[in-house]
Design a protein around this nucleic acid. Structure first.
Lengths: 192, 192
DNA sequence: CTATCAAGTGAGTAACCAATCACACACACA
DNA sequence: TGTGTGTGTGATTGGTTACTCACTTGATAG
């Protein structure tokens, strides 16, 4: 024990946890909770698989941490959009709409993590809690930032879920009416 | 022994396939593609695991068949609602809205299968194709039955995806603002 | 130099799972 | 009665997985 003088703000183990989470995001995003293996993640993070389990007691807890990180990244994007809207005098609700488009284009992994957390929620209580927490935090943040009505919030989340699913099945690489309609972005006029 | 039981008929392979698909639906719905095992499905169908693989060459093809069956069940519900709307003189688009509510309440497994097919699409081409086919068929059917605009179709599917996700995380068992708003049904006026 | 303790690993283990295969049984028809 | 075809299974295989444990390394303080 004999601990003293916290000269380091982040412990090394804590830094490693960040590394592992960052390495796990693309893997879980691509393969999901069940099919994404801890061995693969360990290799991507440059550590042994054994050490993954020293940093996170179970795979489920690692995944829950990844979901939390993805949620944080979404929240940052939303706050940023809110601030930008205030700065440029746009409607805040309108700018909430464009957040989804930006995320769809730029941070696809985060959307996929969210989707995977929702389906893994069905058979892993820890993940179910993480997925619900993600919704609660997002909901309260968007409500605060946009001042939108319940009906508007419902639509916003609905479009978000549609975007997630379209990303998951790579619908933007299909040139058929359903794919074109369901992947068209919310904020943009079609040509510009 | 008990040598001569009168006329014990063996099932035809096609009948068995239907049985297996029916048995697989709740299992894949609850546990997803990766975590739902063929052993579990075989037991639920009352046959050996080996025979599952005689009826379906791979697990992915079994799952794709399950997705097809789920898609058929959704299409039936939609056609029925369309016919009912015509009979009762309701707006057809309006009745399309209530289809989702009914499915959410009555046929949750079908919604979950759809959701699971979408996430498994990411790492299994056969399933990706099944998921896309499901969307295309559904899209064309709803378009035909409702005569809705692209914007309306987009909203309809978006709400559908939101319902799927809320079902997956059992949001209706959470009494918090986000859960109450995001699970409120489309067709009903709100209570209290 | 040595004691200490956290960071980190190699080498497992037990369980599980998709897929295979040789074989048994039931039926129809000759 | 025999023969062929399709239904069905027990036993197994090769591979993967989450998770464990005994152990080493490296930094730091007295």
């Amino acid at each position: 024990m004999a601990s003293r003088t916290p000269t380091r703000t982040l412990s090394t183990a804590e830094e490693r946890r960040e590394t592992v989470i960052a390495a796990a995001i693309p893997i879980f995003a691509a393969r999901g909770y069940d099919a994404g293996s801890t061995m693969e993640i360990a290799k991507a993070a440059g550590i042994s698989q054994a050490y993954v389990f020293r940093l996170f007691p179970t795979k489920a807890e690692l995944f829950a941490a990844v979901v939390g990180a993805a949620s944080d990244r979404m929240q940052d994007a939303i706050r940023e959009a809110g601030a930008r809207a205030r700065g440029e005098g746009h409607s805040r609700l309108e700018s909430m709409g464009t957040v989804l488009d930006e995320l769809t284009e730029r941070d696809r992994d985060v959307l996929l993590i969210q989707l995977h957390s929702q389906v893994a929620a069905g058979h892993e209580p820890l993940i179910r809690d993480a997925a619900r927490r993600c919704f609660r935090d997002l909901y309260e943040l968007v409500e605060r930032e946009s001042g939108a009505s319940e009906e508007e919030l419902r639509s916003w989340f609905a479009i978000g879920m549609l975007n997630n699913v379209m990303a998951a099945i790579d619908a933007d690489q299909v040139d058929e009416p359903w794919a074109n309609t369901l992947t068209s972005l919310t904020g943009s006029a079609e040509d510009s």
